[in-house]
Design a binder for these strands. Structure first.
Lengths: 124, 124, 124, 124
DNA sequence: GTGGTCTAGACCACG
DNA sequence: GTGGTCTAGACCACC
């Protein structure tokens, strides 16, 4: 469960990476509503991070409504199934929009993008 | 020329934002080989930034081969036409790959993505 | 009897919430001198709490003189009628003083408060 | 500016106390839109706290929309004047409602409360 | 000089 | 055993 690798070289701060991994686990359904997250200190040990760093991840996720801390008994996955699909689509859609905007602004045509997309989707 | 807005709230550092804008201007052809970039202090004043910040952008762009500083006469756009197309494609391709990876990992199917893409390309 | 809801999200610890509810029951007269409190394990089961948590509540209430534990026969409500009115007033008075202090410090006038008070007292 | 005293004995965590003080300063107008907050390390030194503790306060206030961090140049007060009155009223109103609820539930009458209020408002 | 991230580790409240 | 708070101090990115 929650098996992932920290990229030391990444410009993205460690705590953001861990946060991303957990969000993806929730959105993909690998972590379901009511599931218990690993304890802060436990996860910290596994990832060889300082407990404070993992705590920061959990605070963040709680702020954003993905998980819910319970005094003395850990964190549970909170998000309601109905909302998940909407979140998923909007995350991807927003990023894709940005990317298209950028592509157009540097001179890509609609066809260029369609071709690139087709190539990527069929190659991997 | 080079008219853009800094997003104070963005997690992207200011100097990265400015750098992005200039690269896009070059890749799009709005800034052509040999064009003179605005002087550091001038651009800094327009954008209400510290000159150090703009200087950092120019050093970066010079490092990456987009522009060329000339003692006493400012910075000129440098890049050779042949390279531009390659750069353009690889920038967009890399980001698109990342995005697709993410989409798949949270459960999108190939069809989901094709549908989303079609919708975005036709709507705006 | 003693029917209440724990607010998991509250910053107030669970045991404090339970304690508050019982004190209010005593001050309001719903629990009278000599009444028997539910057994620790029984109340814990009803509230879906750890018995330790309920035990802590009872120890606290005993410390503060509201109830009295009797070996083998549970806890009884203890407090003497004379004291109750004084306690009631001082609890409310202390909290109200704090609130007024706060209101004044952020710029409320005496009239603002009187108006707010009137509105609340007549509306609900 | 921002002159306050930490209550070591308070059950309220230090960082919450500092946060409260700053919010009150903003709501009262002592800190106005655009004002610069003391640097994290500076305030930490004055209050004899660890910089991390003050940083937590600032992160919190930023989350709640009261202030806005600017990379490398500190935090500014953000909140828009129009909103302030609304926030002020709702903070006090919510707390007052809770208090009245409690008072009624332990047997206070409307008159009891009006009398208490009158006494407090005229005494101090 | 300023904030952002991270580590190491202590102490306490809660369940 | 679990999270919450706090300290001390390091290192880096940004302005």
């Amino acid at each position: 469960m929650t098996r992932f690798k920290i990229d030391e070289a990444s410009p993205l701060p460690v705590y953001q990476q861990v946060k991303q991994f957990i969000i993806i686990d929730i959105l993909s359904g690998r972590l379901k509503e009511g599931d218990k997250l690993p304890p802060i200190r436990g996860l910290a040990k596994i990832l060889r991070l300082n407990p404070n760093t993992v705590a920061k991840v959990y605070y963040n996720l709680e702020d954003e409504g993905f998980i819910q801390g319970k005094r003395g008994s850990g964190y549970l996955v909170k998000s309601q199934k109905q909302k998940l699909d909407k979140i998923k689509v909007s995350i991807i859609e927003d990023e894709l929009k940005e990317l298209l905007k950028k592509a157009f602004s540097i001179g890509f045509s609609k066809e260029d993008i369609e071709n690139l997309m087709r190539r990527l989707l069929n190659n991997e």
